[in-house]
């Protein structure tokens, strides 16, 4: 177990290097001059321009720039924007909001998804089963910005159940409810289908037959013996999805005006703010890798047949 974790941590290093290099190169390749418009209508004074280029290593070729960036990164420095704002400070302010939204979306999709999956799995082919199969298909087929816009209009404006957009820099639980449901809706559809399929399969298994032959109540045969096995793939999916959610929901955050990491990344790309983009993506890559590692460890706990030795 210990050696497994160490091996996985070491494997992260080339992944982080590769991912940051790709992002760095892409941002480097973007057209435009960071100095353009920096000094208003006039071009910047040559002395300032030279100092600026020197400070942000803009005169160096790409590999050198990247090497310097990674060197800073190794010391915990995620760089600063051309306005002199530290990327890490921005992330510190925004990540809690994204994390809160991700957790809410995750709770919503897991609780509702598994419940729906179990009920449809038990009554396979029934009315509820068909209803859910069709509605999940609809949800999966519609893009998030449509679901977001529609739910804003109907649930927010028409019915007034939820706030339409987030208005504070530190949004409350209630304000994040609608965005979390929109964000979780697609995964909710996948989770309910995955749970259903997995449960239907396990209900036919020999060990559920054994549970019946042991004289256990049906509720226990299904709710414990079959479900415990059915949840192995579901929990794995939820874990990976958590990694994605922590990467910030760019579209959802933009629709609901949430000051999270996704919205920040979106604005940084539009503003050609290279340092912010690279810094944010680096953090997201690292978070994603760690969540994946946690999922794999959790998988070993859920399924005793998986060994991490």
């Amino acid at each position: 177990m210990g050696t497994y974790v160490i091996r996985r941590l070491l494997q992260m290093i080339p992944v982080i290097l590769g991912a940051t290099f790709l992002i760095f190169t892409m941002v480097f390749a973007l057209p435009g001059d960071p100095l353009a418009g920096k000094c208003g209508e006039r071009p910047c004074p040559p002395a300032y321009a030279a100092a600026f280029r020197e400070k942000y290593n803009l005169n160096d070729p790409l590999p050198i720039q990247y090497g310097k960036y990674v060197g800073n990164l190794a010391q915990g420095d995620f760089g600063e924007t051309t306005n002199g704002i530290k990327v890490i400070d921005q992330l510190k302010a925004r990540y809690p909001i994204t994390a809160k939204l991700a957790l809410m979306a995750l709770a919503f999709e897991a609780i509702v998804g598994i419940t729906v999956g179990v009920f449809t799995g038990i009554k396979k082919g029934g009315f509820l089963d068909n209803l859910v199969l069709i509605s999940t298909l609809v949800v999966i087929s519609i893009p998030v910005f449509v679901v977001g816009g529609l739910s804003q209009y109907f649930l927010g404006v028409k019915l007034g159940l939820f706030p339409v957009t987030v208005t504070s820099a530190n949004p409350s639980f209630y304000q994040l409810m609608l965005p979390a449901m929109v964000l979780g809706s697609i995964s909710l559809a996948y989770i309910s289908r995955l749970t259903r399929t997995s449960l239907v399969e396990n209900l036919r298994s020999d060990y559920v037959r054994t549970a019946t032959a042991k004289g256990l109540r049906r509720r226990r045969s299904i709710g414990l013996h079959a479900l415990r096995n059915s949840l192995i793939p579901v929990v794995t999916f939820i874990g990976f999805d958590f990694g994605f959610l922590l990467g910030g929901a760019i579209v959802t955050e933009a629709i609901f005006n949430i000051p999270g990491v996704g919205g920040y990344l979106f604005r940084s790309i539009r503003a050609r703010d290279g340092a912010s983009v690279v810094g944010t993506v680096t953090v997201l890559v690292i978070v994603f890798l760690f969540v994946n590692l946690l999922v794999d460890l959790l998988y070993g706990l859920l399924d005793p047949r998986i060994s991490h030795d």
């Binding site: 020999d206 060990y207 054994t210 549970a211 032959a213 013996h225 096995n229 859920l302 399924d303």
Partner: peptide, 15 residues
């Protein structure tokens, strides 16, 4: 009470 043919699949793998 009953015993089945394939004990590996008849026992619950996660308990």
């Amino acid at each position: 009470s009953m015993i089945f043919q394939d004990a590996l699949s008849s026992l619950n793998p996660v308990f």
